[in-house]
Design a protein around this nucleic acid. Structure first.
Length: 462
RNA sequence: GGCUGCGUAGCAAAAUGGUUAUGCAGUGGCCUGCAAAGCCAUCUACACCAGUUCGAUUCUGGUCGCAGCCUCCA
């Protein structure tokens, strides 16, 4: 029985799809004017894991994640670069896809772009104006009249009268009410623009998600996700727009993931304290980053540090070491471990507990490795369960020998040295044998003698 | 100021009204020529103060501390 924490009710709820066996999931994706940072990676990995688990649990899932490819920052960056905004966004969409593939994030089923959804956006605004929920301001921009929407604040728990609009930013004088937000923004000369009943312009940020989500999944769908910071105003505004326009409930369940932090502070572009995925990929292997992201529950904060990434590498090495040398038959999962794993994931995607099941499994696997049949079944179980987390899909030897190959040694070099050491060992020349082992160790290559005389090796730095 | 959420051992991170989380690190043992890996055992906890209870880290109230949102942000 899958339970998910719903931001709307601030409780874990038993998940009940609108249509038996089917799930519609929409996640707010990236604004593509720069490379993805680790905070973005967390969203991608978390919802990828959610998607994988829904499918593993037998649901027919439609996973939609949008791309915001037009907004003020994109225009600004394109101007700074002297680049067409489409060229800019195309570059960063490609980069984003590259980062995703590195992190074993499977592509969403639908990836709508704001610039390709103009008709839907415009018709939704028209409906809102018809219903008097929106108006054209004194500067020609179209605004949503927040006070006309009854449920405003139900997601973020805010009351209109408590909000301090204009406290931190100047209030736009074109609005009737400081809390009103823009739906359609008139273009300045030379800005990218689309034709609309209100003139050449572009959509406000919030309306695109209302248009794209309802367009792809229907007026009323199961789950909407995104980062914590989108709760207000973005998702609150989406509710106002969608429910205002359609008159139907917009979303049953809202999922929000916690932030990645640096030194106990939110990682964000505006604070400038971020690491891009590609920077981090230079230091750590992709699977280590994925493991790190899933090592805390998705709603908890995740502190980024080299120590933690290092730990993640060691932990992952332990799991791969358990799989090493075990032939994996095509047998069904060990039912006890599978049940424990599912129980963990069913409890609001509790990946830390799911990990603990994998480690228990690895321990038992290590202790019964001589029993080939049992070991094979446990290894098969470990691989199957880990696959729903997008982990442990590499060949163990490839993973363990991969690592950082800055040692300048080829596999042949290493094997030659191991051979020399085997000869020394056979001659009981322990000094020479240890010398060879120490030399390799200095280069980050760890030797492991296996009972029976052979020696395996791995690169220390995962 | 308003609204969220959090405070767990050396580090990271979960669950739980009474019983082993888990990973890394430490200690002791087994294995090994010695190691490494692995296995077994083991030491470090639940911010503080009240209350409820036979019993609270877990529930309630308060205090202190931290983070986030109330501008753009995953």
């Amino acid at each position: 029985m899958l339970k998910i924490y719903n931001t709307l009710t601030r409780k874990k709820e038993v998940f009940k799809p609108r249509v038996e066996g089917k799930v519609g999931l929409y996640v707010c994706g990236m604004t593509v004017y720069d490379y993805c940072h680790i905070g973005h990676a967390r969203v991608m990995v978390i919802f990828d894991t959610v998607a994988r688990y829904f499918r593993y649990s037998g649901y027919d899932l439609t996973y939609v994640r949008n791309v915001t490819d037009i907004d003020d920052k994109i225009i600004q960056r394109a101007n700074e670069n002297g680049e067409d905004f489409l060229a800019l966004t195309e570059r960063f969409i490609d980069a984003m896809h590259e980062d995703e593939r590195a992190l074993s994030v499977l592509p969403p089923d639908i990836e709508p772009k704001a610039t390709q959804s103009m008709d839907n956006i415009i018709s939704m605004i028209e409906v809102l104006i018809t219903k008097s929920l929106a108006y054209v301001g004194t500067n020609g921009d179209v605004f949503y009249s927040v006070s006309k929407f009854d449920g405003y604040g139900k997601l973020s728990g805010k009351k209109l009268e408590d909000l301090q609009a204009g406290e931190r930013v100047d209030v736009d004088k074109a609005k009737k009410d400081p809390m009103d937000f823009v739906l359609w923004k008139m273009a300045k000369p030379d800005e990218p623009s689309w034709n609309s009943p209100w003139g050449q312009g572009r959509p406000g940020w919030h309306i695109e998600c209302s248009a794209m989500s309802t367009c792809c999944l229907g007026n009323h769908f199961d789950i909407h996700g995104g980062g914590m910071d989108l709760q207000f105003p973005h998702h609150e505004n989406e509710i106002a727009q969608s429910e205002g326009a359609t008159g139907e409930t917009f979303v049953n369940l809202w999922m929000h993931n916690g932030f990645v932090r640096i030194d106990e502070e939110k990682m964000s572009k505006s604070l400038g304290n971020f690491f891009t995925v590609r920077e981090v990929l230079k230091k750590y292997r992709p699977e280590v980053i994925r493991f790190f992201v899933l090592s805390s529950q998705y709603r908890s904060p995740l502190n980024y540090s080299d120590e933690q990434l290092g730990d993640a590498g060691v932990a992952l090495t332990r799991l791969y070491t358990a799989l090493r040398g075990v032939e994996i038959p095509s047998v069904s999962c060990d039912i006890d471990y599978k049940l424990r794993f599912k129980e963990a994931m069913d409890d609001d995607f509790n990946t830390p507990i799911a990990f603990s099941v994998l480690f228990d499994l690895a321990r038992e696997l290590n202790s019964i490795k001589s029993d080939k049949e049992k070991a094979g079944q446990l290894a098969a179980t470990l691989k199957e369960l880990a696959s729903t987390l997008g982990l442990l899909q590499e060949d163990p030897e490839v993973f363990l020998k991969g690592g950082e190959a800055s040692d300048g040694l080829s596999e042949d070099d290493i094997n030659q040295k191991i051979q020399n050491r085997v000869e020394a060992k056979n001659n009981k020349d322990w000094v020479k044998a240890d010398e060879i082992r120490d030399q390799l160790k200095e280069k980050g290559i760890v030797l492991e003698d296996i009972a029976g005389g052979s020696t395996s090796w791995r690169r220390e730095k995962a």
